[in-house]
Design a protein around this nucleic acid. Sequence first.
DNA 1: CTCAGATTTGTACGTTCGTACAAATCATCA
DNA 2: TGATGATTTGTACGAACGTACAAATCTGAG
Lengths: 230, 230
Amino acid sequence: MTRNPNMREAILSAAELLFSTRGFNAVSIRDIALEAGANPGSVTYHFKTKDGLLLEIYKRHCGPMNKRRIELLVAARRVRDVEDRLEAIVRAYVQPAFSSSSDLAGGGARFTRLRAVMSAEGNAVVGRIIAEIFDDTTNSFIDAIEESLPQLPRSTIVWRSQFLLGALYYTLVNPERVTRLARGEADGADMAEAIEQIVASTVASLRASDVDHPPSATGVVRRRKENPAS
Amino acid sequence: MTRNPNMREAILSAAELLFSTRGFNAVSIRDIALEAGANPGSVTYHFKTKDGLLLEIYKRHCGPMNKRRIELLVAARRVRDVEDRLEAIVRAYVQPAFSSSSDLAGGGARFTRLRAVMSAEGNAVVGRIIAEIFDDTTNSFIDAIEESLPQLPRSTIVWRSQFLLGALYYTLVNPERVTRLARGEADGADMAEAIEQIVASTVASLRASDVDHPPSATGVVRRRKENPAS
DNA sequence: CTCAGATTTGTACGTTCGTACAAATCATCA
DNA sequence: TGATGATTTGTACGAACGTACAAATCTGAG
């Protein structure tokens, strides 16, 4: 049936690689074909349009990644210790973004990087997918966090989850900046380290009391006030 | 000397607006001219090339923003209380990203959003600027944080600063997602609220002990281990 | 071996892009 | 006012883009 059963995959993989590093608009179908060792016509044969190709990449990854996330979330909810549970929940969200179960090594991180780039470009196709697919998963996580941190308003959890995603994205988009600023003491491309750092940072952020209602703050948290600078 | 002294400014402003929402590659010079009410030829007259226009936008904002940051940082360093000082330092970094001193209302946020989009697109012109200009400022902040948190390794501070920038960027790129997920309880476009949330979250993250050396951890922090899920 | 269907190839079309440039227009000052 | 330099306009060009499509090629079943 298929002459080279890997041609379609090769195109998908090449597109994923190029989109995730250069963005959508900056990559031409000819670039993708060249990278995949295919003819430009083959790309339109398999995916009809450039948007269709992007959509196919999302379809390929979204399901498995969010499925894995929910699996890990269900397990995390069962953790008895409250502190450990929160960390497990955050980890359940972060880890599948770095290593997809359905893919080769690094495939998950590449796809997440692609999502980061697409979200910045404001791609229309992607915007729809996020609202339709990702919001469901994210809501499940917010619900779980809310259960573990009942004193925290949902809106604050939403903010901090947003920051988590931003941290995730920017880490994948600009790993070399960590390496540069750390002067060799850290490697921004070390994904295992990145996961630990993001999880630790997010858990600490979530455990902090709300901005508006600091019950046991160590210092007075100023709100809507000028910086101490004169 | 100038027929309409605002034409150059109008083009700059239009380009800033369009680049920050659609990215660099997706916006054509004709789009910019249309938005600015100018002729496409005028754009190349004033800025020679499209890259030149982008560079000019950066030149316009980088100086004042980083100058303001350093001013606020100097003041923050003088805060006596250690807890308040750390918050002041973080605020000194965040606040100028939202409201540039040299510009109209929202100009700072727009430029920061532009930086977010550009960093995701991997623009070459921008990459050079970041390494040349922004690293200096960022290093000053990392140094200041290091002084306030001597027990924390520099590499960890770098990671958490990276997360701060990611949170900042993503908040500006996707404010509507906060609004959606919070179900009306929060407004992602409320920049004052965003600043408070980012500052509070970052300060909490920075105050947490290091991943590798948890001295007074409330729970055992697992490292390089599988999630509790079987 | 043959043939039908799947896939790849090569080419072409219409559009849009960044940029260049000459002509037209305007503001300023002697 | 008339000349000069700054700016705007209109047009054009070559390149690259997404897409379409017919011809060529390959694969697997009968």
